[in-house]
């Protein structure tokens, strides 16, 4: 026994020993379940029953891909992604244009504007849930001050979609702003001056000088935010929980439902891997543009 301890704590083994706990955790909590769930997606299995898994082949993949509910959830997700990302790009761009100029308290205001990005999803979700709350929520109170009636924003399908889109855009517009701002400040002043001497109008100067510098970064922001918003779960789960009905149930929330409310473990695994595949495709697109931009610069 003594020999074993000596062998284990010898100086040459110190490094591996120190990172071992982290690696073991990572393996047990992440890599093993990942592999296991991949395996399960090819078997009939319910996590809530004691029946042993039986082989199913591609049955669940076929089932998921032909399931009309999955396509409906995909459409809901696409709608929220499109609205939210567009809003983030517009607001982020506008903020970047504003912060490119110098004005008093610029640094302090910039810091405030960046705060939402640093908050946790849960904090943002809870915050917006309270904000939209019909009786005490700030939004409803402000609305009833003018109309005399409380506002139950999350009760209608479009109201709920907007509720999620606004929360997500509030959180992530600063991210887009940071990227665009980096592009804006990289435009050399002399190009603006040259364009002015060449008699370009303000708008022309923007489209021919400013925009080319921002274009690449804007594309990266678009891809990055699309990937992230595609996976949106926390905010939706907390604010609407997919409601009213299933009108804001995004694909990530649906996977959660299938896995942990209906306990269709195999089916949810198969769906998860299809989603993973989509994200990998988008990520590769993202990496391709990062690389292309690196070569240009």
């Amino acid at each position: 026994m003594r020999d074993f301890w000596q062998w284990m704590f010898s100086p040459s083994r110190r490094g591996p020993m120190l990172i071992a706990p982290a690696l073991i955790m990572l393996f047990v909590m992440n890599i093993f379940p990942l592999m296991w769930s991949f395996g399960l997606s090819f078997f009939h299995y319910k996590a809530s029953s004691i029946r042993p898994p039986t082989f199913a082949g591609l049955y669940y993949y076929e089932k998921v891909l032909t399931d009309p509910v999955v396509w409906e959830r995909m459409q809901t997700t696409a709608l929220i992604v499109a609205m939210s990302v567009l809003l983030q790009l517009v607001i982020g761009f506008a903020l970047a244009m504003m912060f490119e100029k110098k004005f008093p308290l610029r640094r302090e205001i910039l810091m405030l504007v960046l705060t939402p990005m640093m908050l946790s999803f849960v904090a943002v979700g809870v915050f917006f849930k309270l904000f939209y709350e019909p009786t005490f929520g700030l939004l409803s109170q402000a609305y009833s001050y003018f109309s005399g009636e409380p506002l139950t924003l999350l009760a209608t399908q479009w109201g709920a979609v907007w509720g999620i889109v606004i929360a997500d855009a509030w959180m992530w517009s600063p991210f887009v702003m940071l990227l665009v701002l980096a592009g804006l400040v990289s435009v050399p002043d002399y190009l603006y001056e040259a364009a002015e001497v060449d008699r370009a109008s303000k708008w022309k100067r923007f489209t021919t000088v400013t925009f080319p510098y921002v274009r690449g970064l804007l594309l990266l922001a678009l891809l990055f935010r699309t990937i992230e918003t595609f996976k949106i779960f926390d905010v939706v789960y907390l604010i609407t929980n997919g409601g009213p009905g299933t009108s804001t149930e995004t694909i990530a929330v649906y996977v959660y439902r299938v896995a942990f409310q209906f306990f269709k473990t195999s089916q949810s695994s198969a769906l998860s891997y299809i989603l993973l595949f989509i994200v990998i495709v988008l990520t590769n697109l993202y990496l391709y543009f990062v690389k292309k931009r690196g070569e240009e610069g």
């Binding site: 002399y190 190009l191 040259a194 002015e196 060449d198 008699r199 370009a200 080319p212």
Partner: peptide, 28 residues
């Protein structure tokens, strides 16, 4: 600036990097 019939060549040349040389010349 636009109202003056004056052109200037900058020390840094200030060419538009995203435009082709043809488009640079055609710009004004």
């Amino acid at each position: 600036v636009r109202g003056r019939d004056i052109a200037m060549v900058f020390q840094t040349f200030a060419l538009y990097p995203h435009l082709s040389i043809f488009d640079n010349l055609a710009y004004p």
